[in-house]
């Protein structure tokens, strides 16, 4: 019997997806509904904004921004 689950499909690089899975496990599986493959996940709709914010915070620590010359 077919069934439908409401959610948000997340498509990202494998590396980013790995970080998302890590965030989820740290937060007691609060986000992910279904782990589909290396680059795809389904997460809860209401939690998307929070997940994006957490990802941003994580990336801030790991990736250094290239310096902008900023000359006019």
């Amino acid at each position: 019997m077919p069934r439908a689950t409401k959610g948000v499909l997340i498509q990202a690089d494998a590396s980013i997806k790995a970080i998302l899975v890590k965030i989820d496990s740290e937060q007691h599986n609060a986000f992910i509904i279904e782990d589909l493959d290396d680059e795809t996940l389904v997460v809860k709709e209401g939690k998307l904004a929070e997940l994006q914010q957490r990802l941003k915070d994580k990336l801030k620590d790991t990736i250094k921004e290239a310096e902008d010359s900023g000359s006019d």
Partner: peptide, 12 residues
């Protein structure tokens, strides 16, 4: 870095 699409996952 991620693309989000709200919708429905169909299985089964």
């Amino acid at each position: 870095r991620m693309r989000a699409t709200p919708g429905f996952l169909m299985q089964g």
